[in-house]
Design a protein around this nucleic acid. Structure first.
Lengths: 161, 161
DNA sequence: TATTGTTATACTCTATAACTATA
DNA sequence: TATAGTTATAGAGTATAACAATA
């Protein structure tokens, strides 16, 4: 186990990362909050999927996912199609307008990062990505170990007894 | 300039880090939201300071800082003392009850991190801390360059014309 | 007139719980 | 009865703007 001070420092760094995130969020197009951009990015990267799958990728409750999806659909960025396999379910798909917005959001976001990190060697950015990914995995792993999750992950409020 | 994909990946990692932060926040004591813990931590680390200084360290608007400080004072964790130098200003100081709460919050937070990162070598945690700190610095630097800040940082709504 | 800090209002993101419609 | 998704409500966090007291 590492020293206390290393953990304390990590706690501080993680809270301070909000500064960067807020700054980056301001570069996004009008009407496109960060979460919308992420929804579009996930649908673009992984293709058509159900609400439950998207909630799992976002790692938030499905009620939250539902709102984000409704926002994106209301602005015409995604389509909610009926699922032939299960009529309770809906298939989400990014459409042409959504692709367009995503491209714009992605370009601005990338440009902002490129400006700020112009003096960073590729290797350092890569290492930061790797460590952040590993941090997330370590967390999810330990959460599932300690909570004995029943195969299905925690993307919805547990049903009442 | 690095490849587009490196920046896109960083964007994704930064948004996904919220999962970890939300999980860690749940380990904090009752009535102590993450921001309160950070306020206490900053007052403990840097000692007595004014609102404006705290707002700068938190990197949020002073109106936001004001609310957090009011929350912490209402619960008896900090004191707001008159500033003999300037009667408009107030000096903030963590008190004994606040120190106690901070110790508890810090212990729980550290324990949660230790559990999840038990298999991480110290060196990796250190490197992650270093990269996150550098990311923040790169951002603040480029922000001050591009905005031509007038010596005073942006911790308050600009005055109206 | 400018600055320090507070408050009012609004917006984003999240969780919990109750609801619907299917399975 | 259980599950997929929705909606209602509440709470934490933030920004903008207007305000009071003091410099």
């Amino acid at each position: 186990m590492a020293e206390h001070s290393l953990y304390a420092e990590l706690a501080r760094q993680m809270s301070a990362i909000g500064i960067v995130k807020r700054d980056l969020a301001r570069t996004l197009p009008q009407d496109c909050p960060p979460t919308s951009a992420i929804v579009l990015m996930l649908l673009d990267r992984y293709g058509e999927m159900r609400m439950s799958k998207l909630a799992e990728l976002l790692a938030v409750d499905m009620s939250v996912t539902s709102r984000h999806v409704a926002h994106a659909e209301a602005r015409g960025w995604i389509d909610r199609l009926p699922d032939p396999q299960d009529r309770r379910s809906r298939l989400l798909r990014i459409n042409a307008l959504g692709e367009e917005l995503l491209a714009q959001a992605s370009a601005r976001y990338t440009e902002a990062l490129a400006t700020c990190l112009s003096d960073w060697p590729d290797e350092d950015i890569h290492r930061l990505n790797e460590l952040l990914a590993r941090l997330r995995v370590s967390f999810c792993d330990s959460r599932s170990r300690s909570c004995h999750l029943p195969a299905q992950s925690k993307t919805r409020t547990p049903a009442h007894e």
